[in-house]
Every structure is written in structure tokens, then in C-alpha cells.
């Protein structure tokens, strides 16, 4: 579980995060949503330890990040898996080498043990035959799956995903969403996804945190988002006619 308390982050005069308090539960897919410029990416980078913050705290299973020594922070980071928006695969390595990378860096496993683990996770993300390809030879959906494989290969306790569906067709996006949800439940990971894909919100949003102008405007789940009367949330989530109709149908069915 990740607990965030009264988090503040500024860049010079610009106050980006204004006192965010929330928790992200283990074994659940937690989504951070909000308009562009609402502070989602900054929030995610604070959670990852890439940005320092001025006030507040972030605790990973009770360990407050800012109070850890450099070595403890490094050990904690080894338990974090991250799927970047653009996948961030290493161009010079093959897909198998990319997935093996965290094992080479942080474990003392033999080459055959690492190879077995890589085979297993690549099979888990349905990429059995892609070992020798370079990232540039893989499609966007394949690259995302490789990024997920790399993120989970070292059995992380925390999985962060920044816009995992961006640039993907709707069918592939659903495959990626379901894969993340399955992996989260299977390995009991605390997963935090930064998204503005409404399909993801409806499909896998077991907990949803809505940010607006650096504040936590609302939090709930994919079920409560249908019945909320928070105008900022409804304006954002039901901005398209399709989602307005879906909501109306849901409310009619549940009246």
C-alpha cells in the first residue's frame, strides 16, 4: 500500500501539487485521472522518487520515502516496476535483453535462471517469439507489453504506468488494460496508473483519484464514478456523447 499525505510540489513560482492526500491499495488497479496540466505526471514522478517535494510524505508499506537513506531508497526502487508512456525500452538491447536488464542489475541469478524468468514473463505477456527483435522492430502494442514484462520481471511490489494506452488502437488498449489488471491481482502488486483514457477508467478503475489544478478533486471507483454529482468529474469523464449515453443507461438500469 502507498499512503500519500498532504503532498505539495512547486516549480519556482508554479505550485503544481496542492496538498494531495490519498492511499493506493495493494492488489488493486489505482488510477490517477485529470485533464492535461492537472498535475498527474508530476504526482506520478513524486511517487516514483524522481521529483523531490516540499511538504507532505509518501509511505511505501509504512516506509516514509523522504526518511530513507540513499541505500534504502535504492533498495526500494529495485521493488518498483515502471511502464513509461513511450515504453522507454533500451534501443541498443534486444527485447529479451531489455526484459533481462533488471535481473542482471539487481540479482545474482545464473544466466540460465535469468533466461528462464525472461521466457516466463514474455510468455505471460504473449510475446513468446519476440526475444531477438530490437524494440524498433516491434509495434507500439508489443513495445508496451515488453515494457510491462520488464517492469514485472523482478517481482516488484509496486507497479507504475504512465499513460499505458497512449498511441494504441482500442482493441490493443483493452488487452494492455486487462494484462495490467491480471498481473496486479495475480502478484498482489500495488499498481498506480496515470491515464486519461476513459475506457481504462470504466474497465479497470478499482480506485480512481481525480486531480484538478493540483488538488485532489474527487476519489472513488469505476462504480461510484457513474453516480457522482461532482461537476468537475462529470464534465471530464462524460465529455463525449458516447460516455453520456453509457452513464444514462447505467443510471436507468440501477434506479
Amino acid at each position: 500500500m502507498i499512503e500519500v499525505k498532504d503532498l505539495h510540489k512547486s516549480f519556482g513560482e508554479a505550485h503544481i501539487l496542492k496538498g494531495i492526500t490519498t492511499t493506493f491499495d495493494k492488489g488493486k488497479t489505482n488510477l490517477i485521472i485529470g485533464q492535461s496540466g492537472s498535475g498527474k505526471t508530476v504526482f506520478l514522478k513524486c511517487l516514483l522518487g524522481l521529483f523531490d517535494y516540499e511538504e507532505g510524505s509518501i509511505a511505501y508499506d509504512g516506509e516514509i520515502f523522504s526518511q530513507l537513506t540513499e541505500d534504502e531508497k535504492r533498495n526500494l526502487r529495485a521493488k518498483i516496476g515502471m511502464v513509461f508512456q513511450g515504453s522507454a525500452l533500451f534501443d541498443s538491447l534486444t527485447i529479451a535483453e531489455n526484459v533481462m536488464f533488471p535481473l542482471r542489475m539487481f540479482t545474482k541469478q545464473s544466466k540460465s535462471e535469468m533466461q528462464d524468468r525472461v521466457d516466463f514473463v514474455l510468455k505471460r505477456v504473449n510475446l513468446e517469439d519476440a526475444h531477438k527483435k530490437k524494440p524498433s522492430e516491434a509495434s507500439g502494442g508489443m513495445q508496451k507489453r515488453v515494457a510491462i514484462a520488464r517492469a514485472i520481471v523482478n517481482n516488484p511490489k509496486y507497479l507504475f504506468c504512465d499513460e499505458p494506452n497512449s498511441g494504441l488502437d482500442p482493441k490493443t488498449a483493452i488487452v494492455i488494460d486487462n494484462l495490467i489488471k491480471e498481473i496486479t491481482e495475480e502478484y498482489q502488486i500495488t499498481t498506480v496508473i496515470n491515464s486519461h483514457d476513459m475506457n481504462s477508467v470504466m474497465e479497470i478503475g478499482e480506485k480512481i483519484v481525480f486531480l484538478k489544478n493540483g488538488f485532489k478533486e474527487w476519489e472513488g471507483s469505476k462504480d461510484t464514478i457513474f453516480i457522482t454529482d461532482n461537476e468537475s468529474v462529470t464534465d471530464f469523464v462524460y465529455s463525449s456523447n458516447l460516455f453520456k449515453k453509457v452513464r444514462r443507461m447505467y443510471l436507468d438500469e440501477n434506479q
Partner: peptide, 17 residues
């Protein structure tokens, strides 16, 4: 620079490298 633009450096940092 390309590694910076494509977030590969961020990926290394997140891993604690």
C-alpha cells in the same frame, strides 16, 4: 540526448541505477 528524450534515463533512475 535521445535516451533523455525517450525517457530511457528516467527508466534507469526509477530502477535505482
Amino acid at each position: 540526448g535521445t535516451m533523455r528524450v525517450t525517457e530511457q534515463i528516467d527508466a534507469l533512475e526509477v530502477m535505482g541505477i
